[in-house]
């Protein structure tokens, strides 16, 4: 530190002032250090993100994070040491009730122009920020087939919410029943509604070989608009009606939408009867169950 303007004893004019200033310790070596450390820091940030997502061992992504943060700390330190004078200053202490001193020393400015160094630092910081965003992707698993398949498999019995397998006769004329795959009660995407329509009224696009007794049809109960349970059956026009947004589906025509915001039919469950006379699934749904996904 070199004292500025002699001994600080001469400060009694009550004004803030710089009392010592050391010029920046910039050099080509210093610049090279900043560039190298920034590069290490940015690379470390990327390695952290990629290794974390790839499920690499803790030592790799943890080490990359540690190295990149320490390298950036070093680069920041060298940057300020190389570009800014180290300034010591004094200012009068405001007594209680005084206004804060209106004056201040001049803003300490950087010495010389080194746009590359600042860009390297900011770039490294941005890459580390990007890497640190990687944990967000860990929050949920990869969707895979989870949205394309349901719990229904060939030969699974349809059971009520109590777990009782059901026979075609259990659904009266004009009646409906909520059923599930055996052992998968309340598995949301597998919810099915059985409807008894007037015999012979079902016509394509209803798949007629999946209609039992010429009148009993199974549809996905999950609305294709926003996923509410399509819980209401209007007997006079054999319509399924969604209480959330009023989408209406014609059960005699493959549950095609006839009103409201739903754009897609409720998928029909391939259904048959087993040797003991219970209703069974012949397969999973053939069409996409529930709302669209991007």
């Amino acid at each position: 530190m070199t004292p500025v303007g002699g001994q600080p004893a001469g400060h009694d004019d009550g004004r803030p002032r710089v009392i010592a200033e050391r010029p920046p310790a910039g050099s080509q070596v210093n610049d090279a250090l900043i560039i190298g450390a920034s590069a290490v820091a940015g690379l470390g940030g990327v390695v952290f993100g990629v290794a974390l997502l790839a499920g690499a061992p803790l030592a790799i992504y943890g080490g990359a994070l540690a190295i990149s943060l320490l390298a950036l700390a070093g680069a920041v330190r060298r940057y300020f040491a190389g570009r800014f004078p180290d300034v010591e200053a004094i200012e009068p202490r405001a007594e209680l009730g005084d206004a804060e001193p209106a004056e201040a020393i001049a803003v300490v400015e950087a010495v010389g122009r080194r746009p590359l160094l600042a860009r390297m630092l900011l770039g490294a910081a941005a890459l580390i920020g990007l890497g640190l965003a990687a944990p967000v992707a860990v929050l949920g698993p990869s969707p895979g087939q989870a949205l394309r398949r349901t719990a229904w498999r060939r030969g699974m019995r349809l059971v009520t919410t109590d777990g009782q397998p059901i026979r075609p006769d259990d659904v009266a004329s004009g009646g409906v029943a909520s059923v599930w795959p055996e052992g998968e009660i309340f598995t949301e995407t597998a919810a099915v509604i059985l409807v008894r329509v007037t015999p012979g009224s079902a016509q394509p696009p209803t798949v007629l070989e999946w209609v039992v007794d010429d009148s009993l049809i199974a549809y996905s109960k999950v609305c294709t608009h926003a996923g509410c349970p399509v819980a209401l059956f209007r007997e006079e026009d054999s319509a399924l009606f969604c209480p959330c947004h009023q989408s209406t589906f014609d059960t005699t025509r493959g549950a095609a939408p006839t009103f409201g915001p739903a754009a897609r039919a409720l998928p029909q469950l391939p259904m048959g009867v087993d040797a003991d006379g219970f209703l069974i699934a012949l397969d999973d749904f053939r069409a996409q169950v529930g709302p669209a996904f991007g």
Partner: peptide, 24 residues
């Protein structure tokens, strides 16, 4: 009198370095 270093640049540099250093 209050004596020391102005917030910009050295206090700022020190705090930034410190937070990175601690994280590392």
């Amino acid at each position: 009198w209050v004596y020391g270093k102005p917030l910009w640049p050295w206090q700022f540099a020190e705090s930034t370095t410190l937070v990175l250093w601690l994280g590392g």
